[in-house]
Design a protein around this nucleic acid. Structure first.
Lengths: 206, 206
DNA sequence: CCATGATTCGACAGTAACTCTCAATCACCA
DNA sequence: TGGTGATTGAGAGTTACTGTCGAATCATGG
């Protein structure tokens, strides 16, 4: 695999490099503090101290406290992956593939963070809220892709409902994963979820 | 119809009556202020003033500002309706019926509020977040009902995913309704959404 | 190598949502 | 009517977040 990393190759100036470093420092500080104190008990001031920046800088990098936790850099990757799938593949298979890629990357790069994040998604309402926002955003991406694939208008009620229902289902997978401490089989969970989304509920009664 | 109103019949004491009045006053004040100033510009203090209570009282009645906007009293009604449907009805029909009842009630009782609420759902992130929370809660109700109906465990991944995906789809209907100023045909929108959720996307290609 | 212009940073002040506490008031019941 | 427990109001405190303003830092052209 030829460099499957989040971002860019352009020769990045010193300024940019510093920015990335601060960004990372803030996120690392946040994760560490949350691990040992919990989310609410962790204040922006503490984060700033630990990351060796001023509180104002923290806000310059992340609009809200929740964003420090949930922001990641996979969206462009996902989008690319989404567009790269063959035209005749069913949406479920496309999603299966895309989700698998995203999960693999995320789990490989920073496994504890991935877990912590999904745990916070169940435990802290504010974080959950922010996650749903970003889920809705991804839903909009998804419906663009599905529009091309299905020939439906991207803003038709049908497509919108469909995309959001898929995202809702996938979000539930994350919660389920966090609640029932399953280990590495998130991907299996995703597969099962996509089966449900594709074929509907397999009820006991016919 | 014999009194299809949110709540109770027991002879309510003066204390209870006052509580209900204050609650209503706070909500009314909030809606009025938001109509004329917008959500963010409206502070709790203003709401308290207008409702002729103290700010602390406002917080006593509603945990957050968003709750003042989105709280309603239909959940018990919905739940009852959900359980009352015949056993052999398909989940889609059950939902169709329940949603229709809820919408009819809500639109009949306070049409402007219903519209405003769904508008705020698109415009104000915090409100949207709170709506999704309550949507998730309703999703849990839904999956209880679906569990009885389908024979699946209420906390099985499959059922959870299914319920949340349905709720996601329905939430999108509300957003769609708010964005495209459709008039009275929310119910038609719901019908179309449920068709999608039941049968999947009707794509252009076979 | 230095001046210039653009960013970025830290410090500070301000707002508003929420929390807690305590004393005063009020509805209910004997 | 007097006691009692619930409800309220006032106030002070915490914290996330916003805006502004010089100072410091850095990329760039001469």
């Amino acid at each position: 695999m030829a460099s499957v990393t989040p971002a860019e190759q352009p020769p990045l100036g010193l300024r940019e490099r510093k920015k990335i470093k601060t960004r990372k420092a803030i996120r690392a500080a946040t994760y560490a503090l949350i691990e040992q104190q919990g989310y609410d008990a962790t204040t922006i001031e503490q984060i700033a101290d630990r990351a060796e920046v001023s509180p104002s800088t923290v806000f310059r990098y992340f609009p809200t406290k929740e964003d420090i936790v949930i922001t990641d850099e996979w969206d462009p990757v996902i989008l690319a992956e989404l567009r790269a799938r063959p035209d005749d593949e069913s949406w479920a298979d496309v999603l299966r593939h895309v989700m698998r890629t995203a999960l693999d990357l995320s789990l490989a790069e920073e496994p504890e963070v991935t877990r912590l994040r999904s745990r916070l998604g169940v435990e802290v309402p504010a974080v959950r809220a922010r996650m749903m926002e970003s889920m809705a955003a991804t839903g909009r991406l998804l419906r663009e892709a599905l529009a091309e694939r299905s020939g439906l208008a991207p803003d038709s009620l049908e497509l919108r409902v469909f995309a959001m229902s898929v995202m809702g289902g996938l979000m539930e997978v994350s919660h389920y994963w966090a609640e029932t401490g399953h280990r590495d089989d998130v991907r299996e969970l995703v597969d099962r979820a996509l089966d449900v989304l594709e074929h509907g509920l397999a009820t006991g009664k016919p």
